[in-house]
Amino acid sequence: MKNSNFMAYFFLAPALILMGVFVFWPVGFNTYLAFNHYEIAGGAVEWNNFENFKRIWEEDLFHQAVKNSLFFLLVVPAIQLGSLLIAKLVNNKMPGMTFFRAVYYIPVITAISIAGIVWQFVFKYDGMLNSFLTEIVHFLHIYPKEQLVDIDWLGDPDIAMYSIMIFTLWKGLGYYMVLYLAGLQAIPAEVEEAAILDGANAWDRFWKITIPMVKPTILLCTMLSTIGALKVFLEVLVLTDGKAETYTALYYVYDQAFRNYDFGVAAAAGLVVTFFCMILAAIQFRFFGEK
């Protein structure tokens, strides 16, 4: 290593300047905005005595948004179990596994706005999903021939959040599958072979060998998807646009900022979300920081 302050900072300058302006400055400015009223027209800033926090504390819409964000955590166990199972399936040494891995990863590399449009048509009142379900109930003779399934997947406030979860599941399974694959491939083949010799069946092997040995990956992925679930908002934006009581915490921030142009309230709500994410991230760093 060579000691050279000038050269080092010369190399670092572009990154530090850009991160300073677009990553570090927003933290401070956001906190500042949260305690002030921001005049969008002239950019005048005025202290308003915690008015922004009082407002979100009292507003039903924000309560609903926070409740929805917490409710959305339901997607975490589903996505973890699902992606671990898929990873287990594609980790076999059988022909065609590369193909299946690629197929499962395609939703991850599809733009969320574009995928959202297709799913709007899937979830529509007279859309794909209902037509599929109609076929099934007719086949099983649950419904009479003339009756159709007509669930309003994105319009019914009781169902809309679940529909957004299905979309999130579809979009995220492949991402976590890849992380779990890496974890699975670190398990020595001998361990599993020994268990087979001892007569353990697939179910026992999954719970007694696979799960304990990928525990670090499970912890990491659970943390990542918990933070991801708390921050859910683009999914809402592209599917329901906040209709049918689907406001989430960050959607509320976006809505206040870029539809109402109330930057102060948006910043206050954003600060609350940041606070919770930092706590979760700190826990995550405690678990994984030393690695």
């Binding site: 991160m19 302006v21 677009f22 990553v23 570090f24 400055w25 927003p26 933290v27 400015f29 956001n30 905005l33 950019g43 933070i227 921050k231 908002f233 960050l250 921030v253 976006y254 900022a257 870029f258 930057f263 948006a266 910043a267 954003g270 600060l271 979300v273 940041t274 994410c277 930092m278 991230a281 700190a282 760093f285």
Partner: peptide, 17 residues
């Protein structure tokens, strides 16, 4: 440490910038 920050809350300050 910036990995811990939710980038979404930077939307408003960056828009102003």
């Amino acid at each position: 440490a910036t990995l811990m920050l939710p980038q979404e809350t930077a939307l408003v300050p960056n828009y102003i910038t």
